[in-house]
Nucleic acid binder design. Structure first.
Lengths: 208, 208
DNA sequence: GGACACATGTAACGGGTTACATGATTTC
DNA sequence: GAAATCATGTAACCCGTTACATGTGTCC
């Protein structure tokens, strides 16, 4: 019944910008969407073919020497499909953060469990920051492939920067708290934990 | 080959705390994990059965009047499996944020697309805040089911609070920027977008 | 001449979801 | 007496992943 997934629309959106060879399209999608809509390349190739069957895109063959590639373009139907979707209710954001699961369960593992998890989170957030900066630099120097799209892309970038920061700062705060707790009694540690919780509730300005 | 998913470990972790009836266990998991490890209830029932086949849990029958329920407890093997996993490398955090996809593609939809997306994100973040606060309140009043677990759970809670805040603040910043841009020329708007990007790069303290 | 990126897939599998079924118990 | 929630699942399906295959062009 439901013919399209958000991934279909992501593809149609890239094609609405311009035509691409499958390969180029997919590389660009990885660049743009990896951190908030990650998908395996093989699946994107398959989805392109499906979109063709559904008449949302059409293809032409291109040759560079002996090498052949398929160039995809959006069809009028594809444009309508995309536009219609953009009028529907957005899905809720959905996070899978295995690290938090590990923190939650850390006391059932070896004593270093928590610290090792923090280290990994820190690394991953660092990679995201670097990637985001690389893309931003292209816009700042005017070499980005879609300079004219900058108006909305800044919003996406802005989110990503703060998103990376969320993890980094969480690691910092957690490490600080762990250090403060060192050498304290279980009772003191619990009081400190409660205090942290109290501070956090205050941050959300909701009735307590 | 790979016998367990992170979901298996999430279940084992809850069972490491104490024994539960399937229903209670799953309700508690929803409460604890919904925002960073969301899973459908039916799948959790199935996984429990699988864990039993693999001897990671064992069950006893309990009767309340005519109603029967199955009580699950972790086995020695289950404990080992959990502990071993906690020693492995954590997986990267993974976000699916359809709203950002919509922002990215908003110019292919109706003019209200962006604003409607912001509204939905704001709502969802609000729900998360309320939920987080409800749980926190239980710890502060000492009525939480696992008061003694508070030491690590504050870290999880701390993340969730800042996570909700991430979305809320992003919505605020984006709306402000949109308002500032109103009535400006395309050229001015682009300059403003670049300026926002520059500010964000500065936030990440990386070499530009 | 070898490594690596280009360019495009296919096959098998699997984790997870939706939708539904069923009967007991509590609450209004 | 109806409605909600307790308490358990099952069946069908699907979106997506991993792992692999295959050949071309380019760079050193």
């Amino acid at each position: 019944m439901e013919q399209f997934s958000a991934t279909s629309y992501a593809i149609l959106g890239q094609l609405a910008l311009r035509s691409w060879s499958a390969y180029d399209l997919i590389q660009e999608m990885k660049r743009n969407f990896h951190y908030f809509w990650p998908r395996a390349e093989s699946g994107l190739y398959a989805e392109l073919k499906r979109l063709k069957k559904l008449d949302c895109v059409h293809t032409t063959k291109r040759k560079t020497g002996k090498r052949q590639s398929t160039v995809y373009a959006i069809s009028p139907k594809g444009k309508t499909v995309l536009e219609t979707w953009l009028g529907t209710e957005p899905a809720e954001f959905k996070l899978e953060f295995e690290g938090l699961l590990r923190v939650f369960l850390s006391r059932f593992g070896a004593p270093e469990t928590l610290k090792k998890t923090l280290l990994k989170v820190e690394e991953d957030a660092g990679v995201l920051s670097v990637l985001a900066t690389n893309i931003a630099r292209e816009y700042l120097t005017g070499t980005a492939p879609f300079q004219e799209e900058i108006e909305v892309r800044t919003f996406v970038f802005d989110f990503l920067v703060h998103y990376a920061d969320l993890y980094k700062e969480w690691v910092v705060r957690t490490r600080e708290e762990l250090q403060l707790r060192e050498g304290r009694s279980a009772d003191e540690r619990k009081k400190m934990a409660l205090e942290l919780m109290r501070k956090n509730i205050a941050k959300l300005n909701l009735p307590v």
